[in-house]
Structures are given as structure tokens and as C-alpha cells.
């Protein structure tokens, strides 16, 4: 398929579905993600002319990982915006021309910034973002250990009379 034929295909078949269409599309996407079997039904907005299955896989992966920069919370796969169409077309053209995944991502990052990646790369300004869940986990564990140790220490604290200790024991057993 030539470039202009592809454009026609874009204009004719990648028209904007309404809200219902988007839902159907999402459903298809979810199904496709879970089924993920070769030969499963193709989502409706896919170009079909790829030289190799690897190229198609790369295209399908990339359009789900790149952000439609004007819609902010959609991937270019989901979005009906004209710009998303342009970006899909460019991903397709570069894929068919043999560009690697990284080359295509770099191309778009150079022009639209890191923002275009739905999955932020691990780099200096995103390190906190990636690491914070683990930091919170470690901090939580430390606080929990501390609390357990304190409670245990309180139980064995000296300075109580035999009566007091007996009363404490009774209290602990709910009498």
C-alpha cells in the first residue's frame, strides 16, 4: 500500500466513533489484551499492510504506549484527534520503513518531549516516581517493626508489683 493510499484509508476508516464507538473500541482493546492469541479479531483502527508479523507487533505495541498529546489522557491508539491520527500514521510509516521501537520513541520524544510516553522512562526526574512505592513500603515496614518492638518491651517492663502484673495478665485475657 502506498503512502497516499494509507492516508485515504486513514480518512475513510479511521473516522471518529461516538461515545458508544469508543466504548466498543475499549472493549475490543481489553479483549485483545487478554486474549492475545494470534489470529484474534483485529481492532477496527489497524492498518493491515505489514511486511512482517514483528512489524505489526511493534506498531500495535507502540500505539498503545504513546500519548495523544492534545487529549492528555488517551493513547494515540484510543484517540480520535487528528494529531493522534498523524502520530499513528508516522509510527506506521517508520515501522514499515524498518525503524526500531526505540528510534520511533526517540523521534517523538525529540519533538513532543517525555510527555509523549505513557510509560515514563526511568531517568533522573522520574526516579522518585518509580522508587516512591518501594520507599513507602520500606518506611511502613520500619514503623511497623518499631511498634511491635515497643509493645513487646512494654509487656516485659520491670517496675510492676506482682499484683499489678497479675492484674495486667487478667486484663489481657479479658477477665
Amino acid at each position: 500500500m502506498t503512502g497516499s493510499a494509507f492516508k485515504n484509508c486513514v480518512q475513510r476508516h479511521w473516522t471518529c466513533p461516538g461515545a458508544l464507538g469508543t466504548m466498543a473500541l475499549l472493549a475490543t482493546l481489553v479483549l485483545a489484551a487478554f486474549a492475545a492469541t494470534p489470529g484474534a479479531a483485529k481492532p477496527m483502527m489497524s492498518p493491515v499492510d505489514f511486511a512482517t508479523p514483528e512489524q505489526e507487533a511493534q506498531y500495535q505495541k507502540l500505539v498503545r504506549e504513546l500519548r495523544c498529546t492534545v487529549c492528555q489522557s488517551e493513547t494515540i491508539y484510543e484517540s480520535n484527534a487528528a494529531l493522534a491520527g498523524d502520530m499513528r500514521r508516522r509510527v506506521y510509516e517508520m515501522t514499515v520503513a524498518g525503524a526500531s521501537e526505540q528510534e520511533i520513541i526517540d523521534f517523538l520524544v525529540q519533538r513532543y518531549g517525555d510527555y509523549v510516553r505513557y510509560r515514563p522512562a526511568f531517568q533522573a526526574n522520574t526516579a522518585l516516581l518509580w522508587v516512591s512505592p518501594f520507599l513507602i513500603l520500606v518506611a511502613g515496614t520500619l514503623i511497623w517493626l518499631q511498634a511491635v518492638r515497643q509493645r513487646r518491651r512494654a509487656l516485659t517492663r520491670a517496675g510492676l508489683t506482682a499484683d499489678e502484673r497479675a492484674a495486667l495478665e487478667r486484663f489481657r485475657h479479658g477477665e
Binding site: 492516508k7 498529546t69 492534545v70 487528528a82 494529531l83 498523524d86 508516522r90 519533538r111 513532543y112 518531549g113
Partner: peptide, 13 residues
Amino acid sequence: PDGDAGLEWGVYA
């Protein structure tokens, strides 16, 4: 007309 240069220039809207 097709936004080709637009993509090169990082045009949003």
C-alpha cells in the same frame, strides 16, 4: 494539509 511538517515541528494544536 496532512500535518507532516506539523509533526516534525512538534505542533500540538
